[in-house]
């Protein structure tokens, strides 16, 4: 039995909510539940009643450049899912909330801080036998005005990573140990998405993302357990600038969430270029 979210000792525990919390707010107009998955068939096959879908490729990525959506596109998305800047958005999804954390992270680029992640994601909701529906809700379009996207506080680019290496900054490689060592260039059972070189960014510590969760139900480990891994065992310092990366930035947004909110790291960014950029970048330093 996993300890209740409130009793796990997280630094900013308010961003993580339980399935109970969500179940109690299904008809609360100030809360919008958002499902973000890797598998596009899951939402239409059944989702939390009232939940809308935000897809990482179609909704959050620019459709031409490798980048995130523009302010105008974010405003249009927010309008479509019927939220205002005051709406509390709660993300959940498959794959232990990888894409939920990714969507949460993109929403932070636009300063939507009234955001939560549902602990355990879709897996836990299903395991608990809670209601699912195929009915797609229709919300009235809202007017949502925000500022330009601000990448700086949350997102790292390749030149910043290079400077970070020179400054001996903290880097966390959240991929599998085989990807870190360069033995393979993609996740086990996933296709190679085109990295020419294997290995890791010099100085990066290998802390696979999955170490942060309880595999049985996808919930996050307690703050004490997380400190044992990230602070004691790996000697990361919460006050030092930290950059996390993986292959395209989805698994590392999960670790970004853990470091920033659950452990209270004060300066942590996600390098979404990750290995699909670094492993192809001419002249980029690589360690094996």
């Amino acid at each position: 039995m996993t300890a209740p979210v409130e009793s796990r000792g997280y630094v900013h525990g308010e961003v993580l909510v339980s399935t109970d919390w969500v179940a109690d707010r299904l008809s609360d107009a100030s809360v919008r539940v958002i499902e973000s998955n890797e598998d596009l068939l899951l939402y239409p096959s059944g989702h939390i009643p009232g939940a809308v879908q935000v897809d990482w490729t179609l909704d959050l990525n620019d459709q031409v450049r490798r980048d995130y959506l523009s302010r105008e596109a974010f405003e249009a998305l927010a309008s479509r899912i019927g939220i205002t800047p005051e709406t509390t958005v709660v993300f959940y999804g498959d794959k232990n909330n990888w894409w939920a954390c990714y969507a949460f992270w993109v929403f932070q680029l636009f300063g939507h801080t009234a955001a939560r992640v549902m602990d355990g994601g879709r897996l836990k909701w299903e395991q608990e036998g809670r209601p699912m529906t195929r009915e797609v809700p229709g919300y009235s379009a809202t007017t949502y005005k925000t500022r330009e996207r601000q990448d700086g506080p949350h997102r790292a680019f390749r030149n910043e990573v290079l400077a970070h290496i020179r400054a001996k900054g903290q880097l966390v490689d959240v991929r599998s140990p085989e990807e870190y060592s360069g033995a393979r260039m993609h996740m086990p059972d996933y296709p190679n998405e085109g990295a020419l070189r294997g290995g890791h960014i010099p100085g990066a510590k290998s802390i696979p993302w999955a170490r942060a969760i309880n595999p049985g139900d996808g919930t996050f480990k307690t703050a004490g357990e997380l400190r044992d891994i990230y602070l004691q065992e790996q000697a990361l310092k919460p006050a030092e600038p930290t950059i996390a990366y993986c292959r395209i930035g989805e698994r590392s947004s999960h670790t970004w969430f853990v470091l920033k909110y659950l452990l209270g790291f004060t300066n942590v960014r996600n390098y979404d270029g990750s290995w699909t950029e670094w492993g192809n970048l001419v002249g980029a330093p690589i360690e094996k």
Binding site: N37, E38, D39, L40, L41, D189, Y190, P191, E193
Partner: peptide
Amino acid sequence: RQNISMGKGMG
């Protein structure tokens, strides 16, 4: 086609 997500095709 486009309903195939990254890891699924192989399986």
